[in-house]
Design a protein around this nucleic acid. Structure first.
Length: 490
RNA sequence: CGGGGUGUAGCGUAGCCCGGUUAUCGCGCCACGUUUGGGACGUGGAGGCCGCAGGUUCGAAUCCUGCCACCCCGACCA
């Protein structure tokens, strides 16, 4: 194979990688599939954090922080949990380095840890070990805690944003007195995630539950939100787990009920990660670069002056300052790019790459006519607008862009949900069209596994609002009562 | 961890098969001038342990061995 083909493959992920790097969001640092998130990308993550944090707190949650290192013994306490994560743990075994006889830095073998420490791949174990000390009475419940943290999962294969070795996320861990309450919490958080994805990120998602095979290690039920990327692959955008009493029993977290009986608490955990930024890029971007929904854009409006002389620039800047103030008064983030080091055309291209939702251009002609040129990033249209009342027009347009982006993604998603009734059709759709396939399934793990082996498609979820109808499993022909959602996934 | 591919300036690359002047080209960078309503142009300039370590050779970016890194495909996964 020639170098060019390898380097310039039309493969989607390549396009995505290049796009992300060029768009200044992140870059591969080369350290075992870790990534450096650049300031512009991090600003987006901060916006996501702020909104999620607000939603968590409104529903009674508090933030806390637990240790990065988890003693190995904690892990072995919940059997299915260990099985799920054992193969991808980074382990700390020593605590000191030294110089050897050649002056090379080596691990000091005498400084071996009594018990190895696991760099958290998720914090259930250490948190539940702590909860044992915090919960004694029904009065201590519910315990609703969230943590913003980094976690490490030593995956064999990494992919920028979607599966980096270290990633940032939030993980919520709650303890409840009753099963019912815990179930409600898990569903509530799924709802919050769906709300956040759709209304804040403009990414339509399908709410559902995972099959036994796809469930989180240690969970009795996994609620998820599934999104569809532009290449027809599905992406799990967030999960919320009902953990039953598994962790309470493993870590001996009991409480005294009103009646004075000792009972195990009921648990949930839920999380979203920097993977959502991958979803953002892969849902909205086009060939010109990123397209950011106004809610997430670090810069919502950029203003570019067009001028020939110093005097013109001065006059334009004066007007630009006025407009900036008006926009800021309406809570709109705006950047006036008066750098003299780059030409307007260059700036236009750069802010398109960065996905800034709206661009204002002002030149001498506009000053004369009391107008500006306003360009939308999402549909690349331009129009000339009167300077009177500009801020209000922009405010409305930002709202409209947010809605239009969601609608566009929704139309794409909905047109890529295909109902099929035969396996031939099933394979055909996955091969040619991609997207979600709605098909009957007999409910067995064996069938699910065989379909996966044959087609690479997995059951993304059993939708929360399924189409209940009599049918026959698309693979085995056995009786089925509802359709489930299949897709190839990231 | 298995299969494949690639490492040459900040980025993208030519040269490698078939060893031989001062390592090619584009973008970017610096200076000056002309430009400025969609990534400007001209002239001049700076920037390289050719991934690392050995080996073969009069001579290695090029051949051989080992190592490392990254990318793609699989298995695993938020």
């Amino acid at each position: 194979m020639s170098k060019k083909l390898t380097k310039r493959s039309e493969d989607y992920s390549k396009w995505y990688n290049e796009l992300v790097v060029k768009a200044d969001l992140a870059e591969n640092s080369g350290v075992r599939g870790c990534m450096v998130i650049k300031p512009y990308g991090y600003a987006i993550w901060e916006k996501m954090q702020a909104e999620l944090d607000r939603m968590f707190k409104e529903t009674g949650h508090q933030n806390a922080y637990f240790p990065l290192f988890i003693p190995k013994s904690y892990f072995s306490k919940e059997a299915s949990h260990v099985d799920g994560f054992a193969k991808e743990c980074a382990v700390v075994t020593h605590y000191r380095l030294k110089n050897d006889e050649n002056g090379k830095v080596v691990v000091d073998e005498t400084a071996k840890l009594e018990e190895e420490l696991i760099v958290r791949p998720t914090s259930e174990t250490i948190i539940w070990d702590t909860y044992r000390k915090w919960v004694q009475s029904y009065r201590d419940l519910p315990l609703l805690i969230n943590q913003w943290a980094n976690v490490v999962r030593w995956e064999m294969r990494t992919r920028l944003f979607l599966r980096t070795t270290e990633f940032l996320w939030q993980e919520g861990h709650t303890a409840h007195a009753t099963k019912q309450e815990a179930l409600e919490e898990a569903e509530r958080m799924q709802g919050i995630y769906a709300d956040f994805a759709e209304n804040f990120m403009a990414i339509p998602v399908i709410k559902g539950t995972k099959t036994e095979g796809e469930r989180f290690a240690g969970a009795l039920e996994t609620y998820c939100i599934e999104a569809l990327m532009q290449d027809g692959k599905a992406l799990q955008a967030g999960t919320s787990h009902f953990l039953g009493q598994n962790f309470a029993k493993a870590f001996d977290v009991k409480f005294a009920t009103k009646e004075g009986k000792q009972e195990y608490v009921w648990a949930t955990s839920w999380g979203v990660s920097t993977r959502l930024m991958g979803a953002l890029v892969m849902t909205h971007s086009d060939d010109n670069g990123l397209v950011l929904p106004p809610n997430l854009a670090p810069i919502q409006v950029v203003m570019v002056p067009i001028y020939k002389s110093e005097e013109q620039l001065e006059a334009i800047s004066e007007k630009a300052d006025e407009i900036t103030k008006e926009l800021r008064d309406l809570g709109i983030s705006v950047k006036y790019d008066n750098r003299t080091t780059h030409k307007p055309g260059w700036k236009f291209a750069e802010y398109e790459l960065k996905g800034v939702p709206l661009r204002i251009a002002i030149g001498p002609r506009d000053l004369e006519n009391n107008v500006v040129e306003l360009a939308r990033r999402d549909n690349l249209t331009k129009q000339v607008i009167n300077q009177e009342g500009l801020a209000v027009v922009i405010k409305k347009m930002l709202t409209q862009i947010q809605i239009d982006l969601y609608q566009k993604a929704l139309n794409f998603r909905d047109s890529h949900i295909t109902k099929v009734d035969t396996f031939a059709e099933f394979e055909e759709v996955l091969e040619t069209k991609g997207g979600f396939v709605l098909a009957h399934w007999d409910g067995t793990s064996e069938t699910e596994e065989q379909i996966k082996n044959k087609t690479k498609a997995t059951i993304r979820c059993i939708p929360n609002s399924p189409i209940f109808e009599e049918g026959k499993c698309v693979f085995s022909g056995k009786v089925s009562t509802k359709r489930v959602l299949f897709a190839k996934a990231y």
